[in-house]
Amino acid sequence: MKALLIAEYRDGKLLGGNNELMAFAEKIGAESTMFLVGNESALPAYSGKLYLADGNECGEYNPSVHKDLILKVVEKEQPELVVFSHSSYGWDLAPRVAYAMQAAQVSEVVDVVDSMPVVPVCNAKLRRNVKVTTAKAVYTLQAGAFSAAEEPTGTPEVEKLNKDSEGKIVFEGYEEAEKGGVDLSKSEVIVSAGRGVGKPENIEMVAALAEALKGDYGASRPVVDAEWVEHNRQVGTTGQTVSPKLYVACGVSGAIQHLAGMKKSEFVVAINTDKDAPIGEVADVLVVADLKQFVPALTEKVKSL
């Protein structure tokens, strides 16, 4: 089995998912080559062949330019599998490459069982094994699902590629995340409000528990999107990555993008009315209760200690 691994580079830096692509290839016992639009001065640690297109020449991500470059490598290497990270780069580019290759595309692979990719369904409450019926396939891998025991080493053997197409989409620059306000990455205790809080007035009770525990309050994305809480308190892939001693998730279901931001917490308590909520997978204690009753009651008791 031959796999082509699509590494990622943005704004002058290699991105983190590349090691997971290598771990995946190793796990399935595939022979791999790698593709990168990047820079020779920042090559991934990899002992294999790397097809490199120059990031300065190609510019920042442009779907059709990157697709055409990958297709050139596919033509040459004839891989059975093309593997991306399930990231804003991977989920944008993988279907385009798959369509051109007339290959099946399987999104957000978390495991491989009996040569079949396994993917989550319904916020990870269910899983399914996927039967691919084409000779070639394109996968995107869920972040964190395949990790290497050790940091990869080695220097790739580089073969350069030149771009020979222009895209219809024009990149006009990056906008950095807003800075300032509370820095949750330093908090020792975080109490987070999820959509289960129901209404903006209830943020108050979550904040009160955080205060009683001498910590800060955070939130899941829907609570931030609804503007009940400011963005710098959002925990997750598109917010903060936190590692407190205690993380209390109130009415948070535990979507993968939220878990990615808080799974390094030392101790996790979840308060949820749904006993099957996926947050239970990472919680040390799952309290099955209505947070509107439980949170104020807990705050009172903590205060009286």
């Binding site: 007339q102 290959a103 099946a104 595309q105 399987v106 079949m116 989550p120 369904v121 990870a124 409450k125 269910l126 899983r127 399914r128 094994n129 996927v130 039967k131 691919v132 019926t133 084409t134 396939a137 996790v268 006993k275 239970g280 997978e281 990472v282 919680a283 040390d284 204690v285 799952l286 309290v287 099955v288 209760a289 009753q293 439980f294 009651a297």
Partner: peptide, 24 residues
Amino acid sequence: SRQNTQTMYFPEKKGVGLVLEGEI
């Protein structure tokens, strides 16, 4: 179609956490 679902199932619970239920 280029793919189909072979099987769907509930993931094995990895969580070793404690589940608390009862009066507030």
